[in-house]
Amino acid sequence: MTRSIINPAGLHNPTGFGYSHVVSAPGEQVFIAGQYGSDAEGHVVSEDFEAQVEQTFANLRTALEAAGLGPSDVVRIGTYIVEHDLGKLEVLLKHLHATWGTELPAQTLIGVASLALPGMLFEMDAVAVRG
Rank of each mutant, 00 (worst) to 15 (best):
S4N: 08
P8W: 11
P8L: 09
G10N: 13
G10S: 14
H12Y: 14
H12W: 14
N13E: 15
T15K: 15
G16V: 05
V22H: 11
V23K: 07
S24N: 06
S24W: 00
G27K: 05
E28P: 01
E28Q: 14
Q29P: 05
G34H: 11
Q35C: 14
Y36M: 09
Y36E: 04
G37C: 09
G37V: 10
D39L: 14
D39N: 15
E41H: 13
G42I: 06
V45M: 11
V45S: 09
E47A: 15
D48V: 03
F49V: 01
E50L: 03
V53S: 04
E54L: 07
A58M: 05
L60P: 02
L60T: 06
T62I: 12
L64T: 11
A66C: 07
A66L: 11
A67K: 14
P71G: 09
V74G: 03
V75Q: 03
V75Y: 02
V75M: 02
G78Q: 04
T79Y: 06
Y80C: 00
Y80H: 01
I81V: 03
V82D: 02
V82N: 03
D85S: 00
D85C: 00
G87H: 02
G87N: 02
K88Y: 00
E90F: 03
K94G: 11
K94P: 07
H95C: 09
L96V: 15
H97S: 09
H97M: 12
A98I: 06
G101K: 08
T102C: 08
L104C: 11
I110Q: 00
A113E: 02
S114N: 12
P118L: 03
G119A: 10
M120I: 11
M120S: 08
L121N: 00
L121S: 01
F122P: 01
M124K: 03
D125C: 07
D125P: 03
A126F: 07
A128K: 05
V129F: 01
R130V: 04
G131N: 05
